[in-house]
Design a protein around this nucleic acid. Structure first.
Ligand SMILES: [Mn+2]
Ligand SMILES: [Mn+2]
Ligand SMILES: [Mn+2]
Ligand SMILES: [Mn+2]
Lengths: 223, 223
DNA sequence: ATCCTTTTTTTGACTAATCAAAATCGCGTC
DNA sequence: GACGCGATTTTGATTAGTCAAAAAAAGGAT
């Protein structure tokens, strides 16, 4: 069985591939950065992942998950996201604090326990951040979402997914009632100021920068 | 922070000390046996635990937990047992299968999550096997129990604790309704056959060997 | 074509945890 | 007091994961 280190690398490579679908491979620089290790460490891990056939490794190029590697990455991601759901649903932890906990639990629970959790939760399809939960078969149902930056002024939206697990950002989102599932309206885009103004519930509207808004994915609500 | 390997060794040393309170120290042979490693590995770990002041190590003698080591061992034991409770209570896992799961989860959960679990469970004092749960302060409330082998014929008892986490044994206990909390009556001791006969509920009486009976701890019920 | 900067790889070292097998110790028996 | 056996320690090796720093490669700019 792969170590939790290997599991973490594979999950990270998967997420890097998702984050930049244009790039053919994940560079050692990006991998090292994402994993918080030195580039040399990333290189030697890349070789070892390639030896185990989890990635294709091109020297001076980068790594790319094989089918085998993707399967394992999705297995871990599934665990991660189901655990996040469980911690929120069963124990009432705040969605802003479940990520770190899931980061270690994802390696520790058995398949049997995971199935129980899945059943307990009623087989959810997204986690508390709106991230899709891969199926046991290793499929990810991708929904078409729009970044808040790309929504027309005046449009009604349903917040669907937050692309940043940082506690501070999640608490900001929370404060302004912008959790996945809530409704809102985009009031204005200020292109010069690179800012978006959105309003949710009875709360006063909030204006945030482009980069923040880009991390909030929504569905456009037909009115 | 100590590694999970160190945590496992300390917990094991604690349990070995409990299992043989007469012995002043835990020998390398016993430690190696209990941990499933070679004697040389036990020796080198003993030295390293002594360097961290978790144990006192006497060459050619054995190891003995320091106050510091005992505190850590009890911390892990507390986690282990609360997790066992949680898996049974919240997810309906069978008590015969929670031990292995807890063995890895005990190293993975945060203090905060542990507190939530404790609260969720209503601050239990024993786990599903009847093992006492150490307090957060590191105290173990010891109750006076009698081994089934030491109970007089005809006495009514309340099963209180099972001193073996083996799945097969636990399922045997289960089949004969001898879980912690249930009532029973000791019908006979057969000293020649080294056997004890006990009866619980409406079930037919069951006769078991001394060694099995010695692992079932009970309270005598005054009639 | 040469230089310069960034990225990547290599090298050498280190820690934690383990094993196999050899050396040594402790201790009860003769 | 010497012997022998079981327990213990030592030695040498291995694997996983890491870093620092040196070396090498890529690739754009001049
Ligand atoms: Mn992880
Ligand atoms: Mn998530
Ligand atoms: Mn453990
Ligand atoms: Mn238990």
């Amino acid at each position: 069985m792969p170590s939790s280190t290997v599991e973490n690398y594979l999950k990270r490579i998967y997420l890097e591939e998702q984050a930049d679908p244009g790039a053919a491979v994940v560079s050692m620089k990006n991998l090292a950065g994402a994993m918080g290790v030195t580039p040399g460490t990333a290189t030697s891990m890349a070789k070892s992942l390639a030896d185990s056939r989890f990635v294709a490794y091109e020297p001076y190029g980068g790594v790319k998950l094989t089918a085998r590697g993707r399967t394992l990455a999705l297995r871990i991601l599934r665990r991660h996201r189901l655990i996040e759901c469980f911690l929120v649903e069963a124990l009432g932890l705040d969605w802003s604090e479940v990520h770190d906990e899931a980061e270690s639990l994802e390696h520790a629970i058995s398949d049997k326990l995971l199935d129980r959790i899945d059943e307990f939760l009623g087989f959810p399809s997204v986690d508390p951040h709106g991230d899709p939960i891969p199926t046991a078969a290793g499929e990810v149902r991708q929904t078409l979402l729009t970044a808040l930056t790309d929504v027309e002024e005046g449009a009604d939206v349903r917040i669907a997914r937050i692309l940043d697990q940082d506690e501070k950002f999640l608490r900001f989102v929370d404060r302004h009632r912008l959790r996945p599932g809530t409704r809102g309206r985009v009031l204005a885009h200020d292109h010069a100021a690179e800012a978006v103004t959105i309003q949710s519930g009875k709360l006063p509207a909030v204006t945030m920068g482009r980069t923040a808004a880009a991390k909030i994915m929504v569905e456009i609500v037909k009115g």
